Simulated assay, not measured.
Amino acid sequence: MSPISVRGFAVASATAVTAVGSVVGVASGSTAQNNDAEATAADSTLLADIPAGQQAQVQTASLTQQADAQAIAADASAKKIAEESARKAAAKTAQEKKDAAEKAAQAARDKAKALADAKAKAAKDPSDFPVFSSYSVSQIQSMAAQVVPSGQFQCFSNIVDHESSWNYKAVNASSGAYGLFQALPASKYSSVGSDWRTNPATQIKWGLNYMNDRYGSPCEAWTFWQANHWY
Rank of each mutant, 00 (worst) to 15 (best):
S191T: 14
K188M: 07
V23A: 12
A90G: 03
R197V: 01
F153Q: 12
T40V: 13
T31K: 15
A227G: 03
F132R: 13
E102F: 06
S194M: 01
T18V: 10
A91N: 07
R197F: 01
A123D: 09
S44W: 00
Q70I: 10
C155L: 04
K111V: 00
A123V: 11
W166A: 04
R87T: 11
S165R: 12
T31Y: 00
I204R: 04
A116G: 13
S174G: 09
A90P: 03
R87H: 03
A48N: 12
N209C: 06
I4G: 06
A177L: 03
S194T: 13
R87P: 02
G25A: 08
A39R: 02
R109A: 08
L47W: 07
W225Q: 05
Q95L: 14
F9W: 14
A12S: 10
E84H: 01
A221E: 05
A114P: 07
P51N: 14
I50G: 06
K121E: 10
Y168G: 01
S175D: 11
D49I: 10
A41E: 14
W166K: 02
D213I: 07
W222T: 06
Q70K: 08
K80A: 14
D110T: 00
E84G: 03
M143P: 01
A52N: 08
W196H: 03
A76Q: 14
A52L: 09
P126F: 01
V17K: 10
S175K: 08
S127F: 02
S85R: 15
I50N: 04
A114I: 05
A101D: 09
Q59I: 13
I50K: 02
N228A: 06
K119C: 10
A32Y: 09
I81N: 13
E163D: 11
G29N: 08
F132H: 14
A37E: 12
A108K: 15
L63W: 02
W225C: 05
K169C: 05
Q203Y: 00
L46F: 14
W196L: 01
A69K: 06
T15W: 06
A107C: 04
F224Q: 05
K119S: 14
L184I: 15
A221N: 04
D213P: 02
V192H: 04
V147D: 03
G193P: 05
L47I: 00
K119M: 11
W196V: 06
V6R: 09
A52Q: 09
S134P: 02
A221D: 06
Y210I: 07
P200W: 02
W230I: 13
A32Q: 15
S127G: 08
A10L: 03
L47H: 04
T45F: 01
C155Q: 01
Q55G: 06
G25W: 03
L184Y: 11
A12R: 04
P51Q: 12
A61N: 13
E96A: 14
S77L: 11
D125A: 09
P130V: 13
F224A: 10
A105H: 12
Y215V: 14
V26F: 08
Q106C: 07
G25Y: 00
K169Q: 13
D68N: 15
M1A: 15
S2D: 12
A100I: 07
A19M: 09
V171G: 05
K119H: 10
Q95E: 12
I72S: 07
M211A: 05
M143T: 02
G216I: 03
Y210M: 03
Q146R: 15
N172K: 07
D161W: 15
P149V: 04
W206H: 07
V17F: 09
A56W: 05
S194F: 00
E220L: 07
